[in-house]
């Protein structure tokens, strides 16, 4: 980066971008913001990030405000299948490129006109985690006929969580696992999460796998093999 500073004009000199996310009270977005700022620094452009505290209406307002500022591009977290269809079309019509990040419309390009999507496929992420976990377990000789999968989620009902668990279920089907349950992890506060999960694992000793979808530190309870997968990355 130091050497680049002397180069005649950085690649994105003078450009302005905006990141419209649903994020809020969650350390995850602090990391994303830092990454965006580092990238902007390196490329010589400017970037601002919007947080909406998981409030869809507020996030829509943030997008409208971002469009009004006429940036050179907007990266949007498309965390709803219908709410973003028209706003994205409008922005594109106004000549502002919009791409999806972090979450995409579940129907991909067919569901939303965004120029492209950068990030993982939630369904595929769930599927891959499931495959990896069950493969390891199979090698260890775990009996799948009575296996039970617990899936604690941090935000019950959130789009990405539902899609991810669909992926996990696809992997389960391949290994012939039939029993699973999505559970309310109780939010982001770790004592609550720990209390919920501990109680659940004690009550459901048949739980063979626990695939956690929260930011709380992994919890080690010696039940079967309880593997906690942190499913968080762009």
């Amino acid at each position: 980066m130091g050497s680049m500073a002397f180069a005649q004009g950085k690649p994105a000199e003078g450009l302005y971008f905006r990141l419209v996310t649903h994020g809020g009270d969650d350390p995850f977005w602090a990391v994303v913001q830092q990454g965006a700022l580092d990238a902007a620094n390196e490329l010589g452009c400017k970037v601002d990030i919007d947080l909406a505290g998981s409030d869809l209406a507020l996030q829509q307002k943030r997008l409208a405000e971002a469009v009004a500022q006429k940036p050179n591009g907007i990266a949007l977290v498309i965390n709803d299948d219908t709410a973003w269809d028209k706003p994205v079309e409008d922005a594109l019509a106004a000549g502002i490129p919009v791409i999806g990040i972090n979450n995409d419309d579940s129907k991909g390009p067919a569901g939303n006109k965004r120029l492209c999507y950068i990030g993982k496929s939630e369904e595929r992420a769930g599927y891959m985690i499931g495959l990896k976990l069950f493969q390891t377990a199979k090698e260890k000789g775990i009996d799948f006929s009575k296996a039970h999968v617990a899936m604690p989620v941090e935000v019950p009902g959130a789009n990405y969580g539902v899609i991810r668990s669909n992926g996990i279920k696809r992997a389960m089907a391949e290994f012939g696992i039939t029993s699973s349950e999505i559970i309310d992890g109780g939010g982001l506060e770790m004592t609550t999460v720990e209390q919920r999960e501990t109680s659940y694992l004690l009550a459901h000793p048949e739980t063979t796998f626990s695939i956690t979808n929260t930011d709380s530190p992994p919890i080690s309870i010696p039940v079967g093999i309880s593997l906690t997968a942190q499913l968080r990355s762009i």
Binding site: D25, P27, G187, E189, M190, T192, D215, P217
Partner: peptide
Amino acid sequence: RLGSFAATQGVGF
């Protein structure tokens, strides 16, 4: 107990 500080401690208390 957690071995760390996390900004989401205390949410909803």
